[in-house]
């Protein structure tokens, strides 16, 4: 019987008990991300959603090990299991090691909110993508350019042969984002990390880019980690969703489950903060969360949301709730749920 490699089963990426700490000489260490568990299924999209400062971008950067020098990963694992290679714990790799660079270049790509920050302003987009291809494959410059043009066409850039000779500043925001996506795809990644890729774009362009990413995911079969603050975008693109608040993943699960039956008070509050598309007669007043997000320095000792939670009770401020299963793939960190479940009971 042929041996199926272990790696081809199970999730592509698992974050297990991951914490990220920033230290500075003057002040106390800041725990930006604490004990996060995430799983990213092969070929699926996990959306990491939360407000500014919740640690979603830091988590993504930790996966690529492109955090600042002041950041450290004191605990946890980042297990990356590509189809055709041994699983590896990214958290233990040296950020500058060859192994890590290979992962960054060949296996995991990232696109950013502002394409200009990752495209060189002095080279044409064609040259930049050619270079990526030549770096990863043994091809002649001519073959590389053909691949580049095919890629640009695939990401929906009109007139790809001519546009390959354009400099980034000559393209509109939407086309630039497409060019960056083409560059990210040039190495055929197993995982694409998209950090707020549509936030700076107009709504119609955003819709186009979301459609494109979905299409490309079908074509390439890659998994995607999609970071956003916009629940609307999550609903459009995600298979799974993880809601972050102040360094904690407070709720995660299948996107349909989480949107249909949000369990954590923060997720619920977030959802009732967005105006619904309703007629005037049905309109309800928004139910915002009181107060503002505290800085990670002032994070409550227990549940990080307890200082603003409308339903907080005795243990919340002191004791940190463990993740509780609230559905098939659905897990929530909340004492209220722990209390409502009888010991040993598991929702299926």
């Amino acid at each position: 019987m042929p041996q199926i490699p272990m790696a081809a089963e199970g999730p592509l990426l698992t974050l297990d008990d991951l914490s990220i700490v920033f230290s500075s000489p003057d002040e106390a260490d800041i725990v930006a991300v604490r004990q996060v568990d995430l799983t990213l299924r092969r070929g699926k999209t996990l959306a990491l959603v939360g407000e500014s400062g919740c640690g979603k971008s830091v988590t993504a950067r930790a996966i690529l090990r492109i955090l600042d020098k002041s950041a450290a990963i004191p605990s946890g694992q980042i297990i990356f299991s590509p189809d055709d290679a041994e699983p590896v714990d990214i958290a233990t790799l040296n950020p500058d090691s060859i192994a890590m660079r290979t992962i960054r270049g060949n296996r995991i790509s990232m696109i950013f909110q502002e394409p200009m920050s990752s495209l060189s302003p002095v080279h044409t987009i064609g040259d930049q993508i050619d270079e990526m291809i030549i770096l990863h494959e043994r091809v002649t410059p001519k073959q590389a350019r053909e691949r580049t043009i095919a890629l640009l066409d695939q990401v929906g850039i009109p007139g790809p042969r001519e546009r390959a000779d354009a400099y980034p500043f000559q393209l509109s925001g939407g086309l630039r984002q497409r060019a960056m996506i083409a560059m990210a795809l040039s190495c055929n990644p197993d995982l694409l990390i998209a950090d707020e890729p549509t936030t700076a774009l107009d709504v119609t362009t955003q819709a186009q880019i979301l459609d494109l990413l979905r299409q490309l995911q079908d074509d390439y079969g890659m998994a995607m980690l999609f970071i956003t603050h916009d629940l609307g975008v999550v609903a459009e693109i995600a298979d799974d969703v993880a809601v972050m608040y102040l360094g904690d993943v407070v709720e995660q699960g299948d996107v349909f489950d989480v949107f249909a039956t949000p369990q954590h008070p923060y997720t619920r509050a977030l959802m009732s903060s967005i105006p619904k598309m309703q007629r005037k007669a049905e309109r309800e007043r928004l139910q915002p969360i009181q107060g503002t997000v505290p800085s990670p320095k002032d994070r409550p000792q227990g549940c990080s949301f307890s200082s603003r939670c409308p339903v907080a009770f005795e243990p919340c401020a002191k004791v940190r709730p463990d993740p509780t299963r609230t559905g098939k793939q659905h897990r929530t960190r909340c004492h209220l749920i722990e209390r409502e479940l009888k010991p040993g009971e598991v929702i299926v």
Binding site: G174, V203, A207, Q208, L210, D211, L231, G232, A235, E236
Partner: peptide
């Protein structure tokens, strides 16, 4: 183009204005 926070109403693909 407006993303709606409800995955059940997820657009397949939209009418969509062409181009930018």
């Amino acid at each position: 183009a407006l993303p709606i926070a409800d995955p059940k109403r997820r657009a397949g693909k939209r009418t969509e204005a062409r181009g930018e």
